[in-house]
């Protein structure tokens, strides 16, 4: 069995003709919880979408491997089949399609829904609040029986109580069940609940560091800001 669940080599990605990812090298092991921190527009979401194969983004160079298999040119649906999933930061509304209808088509396993039952008979993401969107996203992703879940800004736009609730679900349904989780966040609030094994910092389309102690990274960013990350004495090396 391949040691790495996800491995990315020298990935260069364009979106709207602009180079966004500038040679990403990155890897994750099975059951690992990892976070990528970075300021807005640093390329975090692009990386998430590139891993999922969103046709909006064009891979110029580099390779993506999942469980040892090269998936760089796989269509999104094939990547989902392999177990890669993404919780969108701002999911689009699908007019006229109820959440229950979509779940009926995509579910790979039955899930017990505690939160969000009332969303099932509503049109997907249409007039959902920020919190409802996150719950809907989690329900969908959990039903896909994932091996890797990428959470794109799961904590943005949520109040403290909602962050706690969402984090609790992620912990119980994913982390405790050894599903790998990649948390993408720019303010890191949820890290206190999910306690990642590793943290990376991404700036301007590049991953500039890796650290085990997420508290140290958050403290550094709070103190110096992302702009100073490159020169940070704690993170360097």
């Amino acid at each position: 069995m391949n040691k790495f669940l996800l491995k990315i080599q020298n990935l260069i990605v364009k979106g709207n003709e602009k180079e966004i990812l500038k040679g990403i090298n990155f890897q994750m092991e099975r059951g690992e919880v990892r976070a990528i921190l970075g300021p807005n527009a640093s390329g975090k979401s692009t990386l998430a979408h590139a891993i999922l194969g969103n046709p909006k983004y064009k891979i110029i160079k580099g390779k993506i491997f999942f469980e040892g298999e090269k998936i760089t040119n796989f269509p999104p649906e094939k990547r989902v089949d392999l177990g890669i999933t993404l919780v969108w930061q701002s999911p689009p509304a699908i007019k006229g399609v109820k959440l229950s209808q979509l779940l009926g088509k995509i579910s790979r396993k039955k899930i017990k829904i505690k939160e969000g039952k009332e969303l099932l008979e509503r049109e997907i993401n249409l007039d959902f609040s920020g919190g409802e969107k996150k719950v809907s996203e989690l329900i969908q992703v959990l039903s896909l029986k994932p091996k890797l879940v990428i959470l794109d800004e799961i904590d943005s736009g949520l109040d403290i109580k909602k962050v706690e609730m969402v984090a609790e679900t992620i912990k119980k349904e994913l982390v405790d069940k050894k599903v790998s989780v990649l948390i993408i966040t720019h303010w890191g609030q949820i890290l206190g609940y999910l306690k990642p094994d590793f943290v990376n910092v991404m700036i301007n389309g590049e991953i500039i560091c890796q650290e085990k102690d997420y508290k140290k990274v958050l403290k550094t960013i709070k103190k110096y800001g992302y702009e100073k990350c490159r020169e940070c004495p704690f993170l360097a090396g």
Binding site: P76, V80, T85, L86, P92, I94, I106, R108
Partner: peptide, 10 residues
């Protein structure tokens, strides 16, 4: 793209 990233074909 969203629906394809939920596992549906185009």
């Amino acid at each position: 793209g969203y629906l394809r990233m939920r596992g549906l074909t185009e």
